[in-house]
């Protein structure tokens, strides 16, 4: 079991060793099956669903969960080791473990933002409105006390997060927690996919015109709306923030696209 500096265990809200890798979605035109599996696990790590030091489920269990052969899974694990995301320890307490998080690579994420088109960013924003706006509304009707506590923790933790990587992971975890609170498996998987597509970009220097304290306050208000079961207000607050986020990303993309004369 992995104890965090603040005393929470494994991020607090999920039992240890639970499989938090979403079911496999093979993306069209995106390399082989092993590559898709590796990407899926990498996303779960980047999203902060698997904590540093946490042990991955056994190969047999994880392969079974993803519906692939152990051979394919092993191939994926080799790729993840090469990427430096996991390490494998031998011996009696051996297995594959999530490595401590690196920092967010600004050039890599900037390239990702440049490579997307403004229209694709608008479309991702449309899907975030549909998925995460609805999740916020349902969360206000269905959230457990534990969900509310995690949302409050994550929204205030955002102020203390130092590195860009920590800020991105905390912010991603907030939106995923909203979808967990909605009690919808499909909205949760969709939310995870969306956060892994744009979650880091928001934290590139110069993207957000508000500071992390102001953003944190908005998340606190959203957590509060969910806590008092004000579903319409939760949806409105989420939609307002998501809509502005999309426009910040589009403007940042346009700035990166500008020609130098």
């Amino acid at each position: 079991m992995n104890v965090e500096p603040d005393g929470r265990i494994n991020g607090g809200n999920v039992p240890s060793r639970a499989i938090r890798v979403p079911p496999l979605v093979v993306s069209p035109g995106g390399g082989g099956l092993a590559q898709s599996v590796a990407r899926q696990i990498a996303d779960a790590i980047h999203l902060g669903l698997m904590a540093p030091g946490e042990q991955l489920p056994s190969e047999g269990v994880l392969a079974g969960h993803l519906g692939v052969s152990t051979m394919t899974l092993r191939e994926a694990l080799v790729a993840l080791r090469q990427e430096g995301l996991i390490e494998t320890r031998r011996g009696r307490n051996g297995g594959s473990f999530v490595r401590p998080f690196g920092s967010l690579s600004v050039p890599r994420v900037r390239d990702q933002l440049r490579a997307l088109s403004a229209t694709e960013l608008r479309d991702i924003g449309d899907e975030r409105l549909a998925v995460q706006g609805t999740a916020a509304q349902l969360a206000a009707r269905r959230a457990s006390a534990a969900n509310v506590e995690h949302l409050r923790d994550l929204s205030t933790e955002l102020v203390q997060a130092d590195s860009l990587g920590d800020k991105a992971r905390t912010h991603n975890r907030f939106w995923i927690e909203v979808s967990l609170a909605s009690q919808s498996e499909r909205l949760t998987y969709a939310s995870m996919r969306l956060q892994s597509s744009v979650g880091e970009m928001l934290w590139l220097p110069g993207v957000m015109p508000i500071d992390q304290k102001a953003l944190s306050e908005e998340l606190v208000s959203l957590a509060q709306a969910i806590a008092i079961e004000a579903d319409a207000a939760a949806r409105r607050l989420a939609e307002s923030l998501l809509d502005r986020t999309t426009r910040w990303l589009i403007d940042a993309h346009l700035n990166l696209t500008r020609r130098r004369r």
Binding site: A118, R247, D251
Partner: peptide
């Protein structure tokens, strides 16, 4: 169709 400002998005 296209714009240089996020106030107007494609579509």
């Amino acid at each position: 169709i296209v714009s240089n400002d996020s106030r107007w998005t494609t579509g």
